[in-house]
């Protein structure tokens, strides 16, 4: 499994630090999206691991673990699609 991940970024100090041309490394993340969120989804014990939330998340922040599902809160924007799509109401939105 692979996905883009957060990396440290230092602002260019001098002209030679800037990249030549417009191409750069793929999947290079430097900022989080969690500051956009008003509510955070919580996966509760009722989860039957049907993976609908994992599939329908526009940001792909719900991921499989050995014991079920977990959420990458660094990049969750709190849209609440997972709560709506869950057939068991096993996700609840909690005000931040």
């Amino acid at each position: 499994m692979s996905k883009p991940y957060l990396r440290p970024y230092q602002k260019p100090q001098k002209l030679s630090d800037y990249p030549l041309g417009t191409a750069s490394e793929a999947g290079y993340l430097v900022t989080k999206n969690c500051g956009w969120r008003n509510e955070r989804p919580i996966i509760m014990d009722e989860c039957i691991n049907c993976l609908q939330c994992y599939l329908y998340c526009p940001d792909g922040v719900i991921f499989k673990t050995k014991s079920g599902l977990d959420i990458d809160y660094d990049f969750c924007k709190g849209c609440g699609i997972c709560e709506k799509i869950c057939p068991k109401q096993a996700i609840k939105m909690e005000v931040e």
Partner: peptide
């Protein structure tokens, strides 16, 4: 489907289709 994500951490609005 693969667990890998190829479009991640993007700045689309919340709930973007």
């Amino acid at each position: 489907i693969t667990d890998s994500e190829f479009f991640y951490g993007h700045k689309a609005c919340a709930g973007c289709g």
